[in-house]
Design a protein around this nucleic acid. Sequence first.
DNA 1: GTGATATACCTCGCCTGTCAAGGTACTAAC
DNA 2: GTTAGTACCTTGACAGGCGAGGTATATCAC
Lengths: 116, 116
Amino acid sequence: MSIAADLIRGHTDAIILAHLIGGDSYGYKINNAIKEATENTYELKEATLYTAFRRLESAGCISSYWGDGDGGARRRYYSITQHGIEIYKKMVDEWKHANKIINTLIDTEAGEVSDK
Amino acid sequence: MSIAADLIRGHTDAIILAHLIGGDSYGYKINNAIKEATENTYELKEATLYTAFRRLESAGCISSYWGDGDGGARRRYYSITQHGIEIYKKMVDEWKHANKIINTLIDTEAGEVSDK
DNA sequence: GTGATATACCTCGCCTGTCAAGGTACTAAC
DNA sequence: GTTAGTACCTTGACAGGCGAGGTATATCAC
C-alpha cells in the first residue's frame, strides 16, 4: 500500500539530496530509484519532485545543467552543492531527532497502555 | 531546538490518539504532557491541536464532553472511540512503514556516500 | 507515415495540515 | 483591579503534495 503523503511530507528534500550525494542524476532516474529502493511502496509524484528541484535550486542546495538523454528526451541533471551537503547533514540530524520524538509519543505510550 | 513542523506533520492525530488510549483527557493537559515527554523539544501549537480535535471528532475517532476544571476554566474532555482505536493501530503500522522507508532513502544512502 | 510506447520534462490550481495572531472566560492571589 | 494561570476557540495566510494536464524526443510495429 502507498504511504500517506503527510507522513513523508518534509522529507522530500532530504531524500533527493541523499540521492545526489551519490552522484549527479536527473529527475526521472531518481524517481525510479526511489520506487525500486522501496519495492514500489513509495514514489515521489512528478509534480512533487519537480517542485522540490525548484525549491532546492533556489535555496542553493543543488545546481543543474542540461545533458542529452541517450535514446530519449533530453535530461536535466542535478548536482548537490557544498551548501546542499551541509543542509543535508542537518536534515539527517533533524530526522533522527524527529524520529525519536514520534516514537516517544506514539510507540512508547502505546506500550504503557497495557497496564491501564 | 524545536523540531521542524513538517517532519512531524501528519503524526498529530496519532499522537493525540495515543494519549487518549491511556484515558480521557483534555487539550491543555495533553499539550503539556507532550512537552514534558519530549523534554520541551516539541510542542503542538494550540491551533494545530484544536484543529486536530475537530478533525478526529468529525471522523468518529474521539468523542467529547464538558467537565469542570477544578480551580480554572472549564475543560472539554475527549474519549477515544472503538473506531479511533482501530484507526490508531493503523496509524502506528503506517508510521513503522514510513519510518523504514525514510531510513532506507535517507540513512542508508548516506552510508553509501563514504565510498564516493 | 502514423500510431503506440517509453523516456523525460514542466506548470496550474486545488487541498490539507500547520500556526501566528487574536479573542473569550473563569479563578486565585496580591 | 489587575496580573497570572488555566482553558478553550477561530480566522486567515502559508507551504508542501499532487491530480490533471501539457510538451518534446526517440524507437518500434504496422
